[in-house]
Design a protein around this nucleic acid. Structure first.
Lengths: 250, 250
DNA sequence: GCACAGCATTCCACATAGTGGCACGGCCTT
DNA sequence: AAGGCCGTGCCACTATGTGGAATGCTGTGC
């Protein structure tokens, strides 16, 4: 609505991140903006230290390291991040599947903030920064299950988009699943968001019980085993609990 | 020079990152800008998804998760990041000191991008995103030693700022030290940038020998042992080499 | 319980600050 | 040598952001 130049420059910054190293011309095609406008914006972003010219081809732009100093509140001081690292590696060693750490963003979506890979040739792939809806994934519901009822109802009121025929689209379906998560201590996702992707997740909690993040074991459907779910659920819940404790200790 | 609103909004974004969660009033004091200007900027940043209101106190602002999708070229696809993780943990286990991974930014400075902590009650402290000059630190010189002579001379021409009485302020002093690093395979820093902080570092190289990053063991001066330096130097160099190889394998 | 103080938020007339069409110049291809 | 392509610089126009002042909210102390 306002600050057109600001919102536009951030859009351009995001586009540079996706396509780096990228030229002015490529960006004008993406946005359909005049060359001079894009050029001026890039120079300004570079002046602020957020962008820089590529070393090998100086007409290409890429993201500068300044962005690393700007981290979401949940990762401030890296306490969550640092606390999560080693438990995640141990969990990966125990199950040999990809482990993700995700944080909720403004109760709108979950964002992947860290990942520990497994060595299967076939594995799920999420990049750091990827987002997913709260109601349709294991990490999302693991967090939802620990939020005040009000927030859950707000989310339901906003509408439960369906991504596959197993996505919980009905309010009661979701409420029942959240109850199950609270009693069992872990969340499960079978093809409910991305087809062929399954996961088992549990929430990392603040000292006052607020969910800060969720850890997930995620795997292709072919390796998902119904029998094994409770065992892995317990492993994930233990890992999440350990991260919560380590964080408080720091 | 240009795009005043853009550069200013990025400054404000950085200030929010430092002080989050922060109010409009606090920011106006920091920048000495009119309230309405700061307020409008915050709303615009929030509209773009980079900022959000704090959940508990909605008049306080904090960084949103959008920034995580924007990563420097060196970390693109997380290949460096993911490759470095486990060798760094093993190095920490071997020496029980804090391990840092840093990348050069535009040949102007080194930026800390990852960290594995040790369990000493007294330890060095650098946050992810912290920057340091190339010529005055172990990570910086480990990278410099693998750059083309031209780039090194440009840096020397720009002036070698001294931060303590041991900082290499003379061109020849620096050149000699870079030669030593190339023959020994590791760089050392004794109080040359931050007083009381010592480190041993080695560079992570690209397939064509370009330095991408540096790993460092860093410790308080009290625990730095001259005798042990060559042994730790070899450990760090091995770790760096392992990271280089893993990255190429991916 | 009222008045005040401190804060975030909204409004609006003004002029500055960003816009974008155009033209220049370098580089590679034909 | 000519042509096309792309990054960069220029400048008159006006849309856009500015910031002082008004509004509205919240909590505090008399």
């Amino acid at each position: 609505m306002e600050m057109k130049s600001v919102t536009r420059s951030l859009r351009i910054l995001e586009a540079v991140a996706q396509h780096q190293p990228v030229t002015v011309g490529e960006l004008t095609k993406i946005f359909g903006l005049p060359k001079s406008t894009v050029q001026r914006t890039l120079v300004s972003l570079a002046e602020a230290g957020w962008l820089r010219a590529n070393r090998k081809d100086t007409t290409r732009w890429e993201i500068g390291a300044r962005v690393l100093a700007v981290r979401p509140a949940a990762l401030q001081g890296s306490s969550l991040f640092a606390a999560a690292r080693e438990p995640m590696v141990r969990l990966r060693d125990a199950v040999n599947e990809t482990i993700h750490l995700s944080v909720p963003d403004a109760l709108q979506c979950m964002v992947v903030v860290d990942r520990v890979d497994c060595d299967h040739p076939v594995r799920t792939f999420h990049t750091i920064g990827d987002t997913s809806p709260l109601h349709a994934t294991a990490v999302g519901r693991a967090v939802l299950a620990h939020l005040p009822r009000r927030d859950v109802e707000d989310l339901i009121a906003a509408g439960l988009e369906r991504f596959s025929d197993t996505t919980p689209g009905e309010p009661d379906e979701l409420r029942a699943e959240l109850d199950r998560i609270r009693t069992d201590g872990y969340a499960v996702n079978r093809n409910q968001f991305r087809p062929g992707v399954c996961a088992v997740a549990a929430a990392v909690l603040d000292e006052d019980g607020t969910p800060l993040a969720a850890v997930a074991v995620s795997m292709p459907e072919a390796r998902y085993d119904e029998e094994r779910a409770p065992k892995w659920g317990r492993l994930v819940a233990d890992t999440a609990a350990e991260i919560s404790q380590r964080r408080l200790g720091a």
